[in-house]
């Protein structure tokens, strides 16, 4: 027995010694000792999946971890599967949850066996924007045209989006309230599907993220009419032959008084993890956001990168819960 323990200790020490130089900057005393699992709260190919795999690629490329990373997709029940799984991995900092704001919003609208404060927050790495899209040959040139048509329409115009009671439907309710219109919301399996349905003219509009509809915009199938942001997006390359993301006006300037609506790309640790473990992962994620791979991902998907951690992140969550709770309550979505 003793001999075995000794051998194991020696091996472990050897391993750490061999790998240590690359991680000299790592904060705290904790570091992973076996393979790390990224628990993705979406299916393979979903937005959260691409997020997690980008982080995985950056970590591998720049040797940010002394161990290898395994990505597992647990996206059933709008991600509830992944959260429940991570919640049961009490104190295991070798598992990292990749999510959006569903960590704290899903428990409000769905009967699930976890709460947002079960998890130890690492941080938000990026924010995905939302836009209002119409079909390319739609008569509505601007968001204002579209709103006028929506007010006059009977039956109401059809707004498509991803799963119910999630960001797209929340944004749709916000638009309804802010601009005093009524839509028929049609939930699809994801933004990609909603984009194709718009291209085929089966729905009248959707609120896809830029990356979900960029192919359709370039291909002359759909086009954005406004962006839910305080100011237009930063000047970048042209997307079509004549326009870039920066040419799209803000929705507020078009008569939809919603100043800002976006979706964070977040990471969490299972419950009961220590401050040292948390600090380690904050350090890793911070360095991920500094890699060229990450920058390339942000540019390609037209997200804004802003590393939010600690008190700022907690504050963001608190504010979002308060704001969302009001909408959910008004829509009658709140569970208990």
């Amino acid at each position: 027995m003793q001999r075995n323990t000794f051998v194991r200790a020696a091996l472990a020490a050897g391993a750490i010694a061999a790998l240590a130089p690359g991680y000299a900057q790592a904060q705290g005393e904790w570091r992973p000792t076996r393979n790390v699992e990224f628990v993705v709260t979406s299916g393979a190919g979903g937005g959260t999946d691409v997020f997690a795999r980008t982080v995985q690629a950056a970590i591998t490329k720049h040797n940010l971890l002394p161990v290898s990373v395994i990505v597992t997709n647990k996206g059933a029940g709008a991600g509830a599967e992944g959260f429940v799984y991570a919640r049961s991995a009490q104190g295991d900092a070798h598992k990292v949850v990749f999510a959006t704001n569903n960590t704290w919003l899903l428990p409000l609208v769905s009967r699930v066996a976890f709460k947002a404060d079960d998890f130890t927050p690492i941080g938000a790495l990026a924010f995905d924007e939302f836009m209002l899209w119409v079909k390319y040959d739609s008569p509505h040139k601007t968001a204002a045209d579209f709103l006028a048509a929506a007010r006059a329409a009977n039956p109401p115009l059809r707004m498509g989006g991803s799963q119910p009671k999630d960001t797209d439907q929340t944004l749709t309710s916000l638009i309804q309230r802010a601009a005093n219109v009524r839509f028929t919301y049609v939930p699809f399996r994801g933004g990609g599907e909603a984009g194709v349905q718009l291209a085929g003219g089966h729905i009248d509009a959707n609120t896809n993220n830029p990356s979900e509809s960029i192919g359709g915009w370039r291909g002359g199938q759909v086009r954005p009419v406004c962006v839910f942001r305080r100011e237009p997006m930063a000047r970048g390359n042209l997307v079509t032959t004549t326009q870039g993301w920066h040419d799209i006006p803000t929705c507020a300037s078009q008569g939809i008084p919603i100043e800002e609506f976006n979706m964070p790309r977040t990471t969490f640790l299972p419950p009961g993890t220590t401050a040292a473990q948390q600090a380690f992962w904050v350090g890793v994620m911070r360095r991920v956001t500094e890699t060229p791979e990450w920058q390339e991902y942000i540019t390609r998907t037209s997200q804004s990168t802003r590393f939010l951690t600690g008190e700022a992140f907690a504050d963001h969550i608190r504010k979002d819960i308060t704001a969302s709770r009001d909408i959910f309550e008004a829509e009658g979505w709140l569970i208990n």
Partner: peptide
């Protein structure tokens, strides 16, 4: 395949899980 199978106390003791 890097697909982790269900592990128990033995693998944990060996430091494999």
């Amino acid at each position: 395949f890097t697909v982790p199978l269900l592990k128990g106390p033995l693998e944990r003791w060996l430091g494999l899980a």
